[in-house]
């Protein structure tokens, strides 16, 4: 019996979809059988981030409406047999699916996969309610901005009211240099307010944009700090104890050289 994890944030643009893609890919690289479900009906883009847009035939709405079999809507990843995607419908809206239908669907998926990862849309309306309906645990993604943290706080409140068993936090797009200058909240500042367990800190990294545009998540890429951070998140999800990355380490030419030598 697998686990259903919803990835949510409240605010848009903080990196839910990127995190979903990277966590999903990373877990599959750790030899877990993973299915990703995009619940952002009408504004789907998880398929784009994964580079699977051209393979979509059936989608989430087709499944719940019985237009296809579950298997038919599961798109196998390009180069990883452990990873599947169920895409969102583009032509419909969030009311096309109900929380009950989501519960039923995730139950079925759970039986077959180690992890069912749900990409939640921004907001707290129907789409959010659908996304969290069948989830066993939640990962909150936030950036170190007051607005994102405020929304994350609201979301955590709603999850608590919904009796979510476990809620963990990923602080995304952190810029260590800005934190050092005192111009950005640190991960500790964020945890201080939200009071939930920290699952990972992902630094702001240009490579993420490049990887997203290319449709290949950068998780596990040893050249990228963000890629390593995402891999650590995945390992923590599986229950492994992994120390937090030293985000300062890769500063300056000398630091880069030093870290290359350290790895060897």
């Amino acid at each position: 019996m697998g686990e259903v994890i919803v990835i949510t944030s409240g605010k848009g643009g903080v990196g839910k979809t990127t995190t979903t893609a990277n966590v999903g890919t990373g877990l599959s690289m750790l030899n877990k059988k993973v299915v990703l479900v995009d619940t952002d009906i009408g504004l789907r883009n998880l398929d784009v981030v994964l580079g699977l847009e051209n393979r979509i035939v059936y989608n989430l709405v087709d499944i719940v409406e019985g237009n296809c079999k579950l298997k038919q809507a599961m798109i196998k990843n390009k180069d990883n047999d452990n990873l599947y995607l169920i895409a969102a419908a583009q032509q419909r809206d969030k009311t096309s699916v109900t929380p009950e239908q989501m519960k039923k669907l995730t139950q079925e998926l759970k039986a077959e996969f180690d992890y069912v990862i749900i990409d939640c849309p921004a907001g707290i309306e129907q789409g959010f309610k659908n996304a969290i309906a069948g989830a066993d645990r939640a990962i909150i993604v936030t950036t170190p901005e007051v607005s994102a943290v405020r929304d994350a706080d609201r979301i955590i409140g709603l999850l608590e009211a919904d009796e979510m068993k476990q809620t963990q936090l990923v602080v995304n797009r952190l810029r260590p240099d800005m934190v050092k200058r005192g111009d950005m909240m640190s991960a500790d500042d964020v945890v201080d307010v939200l009071r939930v367990d920290l699952l990972g800190i992902v630094p702001d990294d240009e490579d993420v944009v490049v990887a997203t545009n290319r449709g290949e998540p950068l998780v596990g890429d040893s050249k990228s700090l963000a890629g390593q951070a995402y891999m650590n998140v995945c390992r923590r999800i599986t229950g492994e104890q992994v120390p937090f990355l030293d985000l300062e380490a890769k500063k300056g030419l000398f630091g880069t050289i030093a870290s290359v030598f350290k790895k060897k």
């Binding site: 405020r150 929304d151 706080d153 609201r154 409140g157 709603l158 608590e160 307010v193 939200l194 009071r195």
Partner: peptide, 20 residues
């Protein structure tokens, strides 16, 4: 948390934080 509200006719004791 944000968006939550607690109303009491009596005095109120919160064992926790009240976030913005």
């Amino acid at each position: 948390r944000s968006g939550q509200s607690i109303r009491s006719e009596h005095s109120l004791i919160i064992l926790g934080d009240v976030n913005p």
